[in-house]
Amino acid sequence: MQSTLDLAKLARAASGKSWWRLSLEALRVRRAPQQVGLSEYFAYGLWSPGLDDVARSRFIGWRKSAALDQALNAPSSRVLANDKLVSYSVLQHQGLPMPEPLATYTASGRTVGRERPLRTLDEVRAYLHEAVYPFYVKPISAGYGRGVLGVSDRDGAELCLMDGKRLAIDELLASFRFAPFGGMLFQRPLRAHPSIQALTGTAAVSCVRFICFVTPSGTQVHTAFWKVATGKNMLDNFSHGDYGNLLAAVDLHSGCIERAIRQLGPGGEVQRHPDTRAEVVGFQLPDWEAAKALVLRASAHFPGLRLQNWDVALCPEGPVLVEINTESELAVPQAISGRGLMDERLKAILGEIEAEDRRHREAVASRG
């Protein structure tokens, strides 16, 4: 991850702007209602000569992103997204496509459905010595890919990971003891759609992130971007470009890729996949209308969460709901597309939600 100073030097060279002008623009957006920080000004491309003051005013910073999440998602409803056993139970009950659960590890024996409950680490160890491979294992309560592993096989006391690395079983079990994870979930691996495999050169899924706002008139998908796996990575996480994966902006209407980046800031834009050299920009995501329809259908079953972030895998059997997230970094998609999130459409969406909240407050007040 590049430092702010490094990004600033690259932005100055790419834009031809003086240090004074860059500093003045950065100060203006920091003081604006959208609260864009100094590092974000450079990382998200607000220095670009193609942006005027109006266009820059549409960009939001991480502080505004966090404020939107706090305002739109009720604390009492966050368990619907933050506890994967709860969210998957909802999806399974509704008959919505999701990764197949194989086993769960919790002291209480909680499960999504009919998968095998594992209540002790000894039971987990015994499970790992059975013919249960391949699988993905993930924390029940965690985000950003923390603690997620793809396991292809076992070799004695070691696990063979999908990225070619090895991990001692004891080392895996140590992560099971981390109380904040709330237990672990084993799932059957998904495979990417054949057209995506041809582009990426791997069967690892590359999820589409759908950013949705649930309004009184229905769910609105506002933004979508594609997390593109590269190399031997078993996950599609970006993490500021540290994993080498790509991010790509998606046209909501067509499902075509408009722009792709390999890192935040100047010089991060790419046209082709680094492994296959296939064109990323212009690629048509498969089953696009079905994926959007699936997200709209699923969103209705998570009341109290009016800002939903869905990860959807595009697979041979069709789109699959991988997970729902809250507390997502809404500012990042702006770096991918080069456009600010706070456009007229989002202002209208937030206005509709605020009007509904005001009516609710007035109704409660009228009852004394």
Rank of each mutant, 00 (worst) to 15 (best):
S3Y: 05
K9M: 11
A13G: 11
A13V: 11
G16S: 04
S18H: 09
V29S: 10
A32H: 13
F42Y: 15
G45Q: 03
L46Y: 00
W47A: 09
R56W: 04
K64P: 00
S65M: 01
A66R: 11
D69I: 01
L72C: 00
S76G: 13
R78W: 09
N82P: 02
V86L: 10
H93M: 09
Q94R: 14
G95C: 07
L96P: 03
E100R: 15
P101L: 08
L102E: 07
Y105M: 04
G113D: 11
G113S: 14
R116E: 14
R119P: 02
L128E: 05
L128Q: 05
A131K: 15
P134L: 10
F135M: 04
V137W: 02
A142M: 03
R154D: 03
R154L: 08
D155A: 11
K165H: 10
A168T: 07
I169C: 11
I169H: 08
D170E: 15
A174N: 05
S175L: 02
G182V: 01
M184W: 03
R188W: 05
R188N: 04
P194T: 04
I196N: 05
Q197I: 00
T200R: 10
G201Q: 05
A203S: 15
V205W: 06
R209A: 01
R209N: 07
P216Y: 12
P216Q: 12
S217V: 11
G218K: 05
H222F: 10
A229V: 14
N233D: 06
L235V: 10
L235H: 02
F238I: 07
F238D: 02
S239A: 08
D242Q: 11
Y243H: 15
L246R: 07
A248S: 05
A249I: 01
D251Y: 06
H253T: 14
G255V: 03
A260H: 03
I261H: 04
I261M: 06
L264F: 15
G268K: 06
R277Y: 13
G282T: 07
W288M: 07
L296A: 01
S299E: 06
H301A: 07
P303Q: 12
R306Q: 12
D311K: 06
C315D: 01
P316N: 00
G318R: 09
P319Q: 12
E323T: 05
E323K: 03
I324C: 12
N325Y: 00
L330K: 07
L330Y: 10
R339T: 07
L341M: 14
M342K: 06
M342F: 15
D343E: 07
K347Y: 12
L350I: 07
E354G: 00
R361M: 05
A363S: 15
V364W: 14
G368R: 15
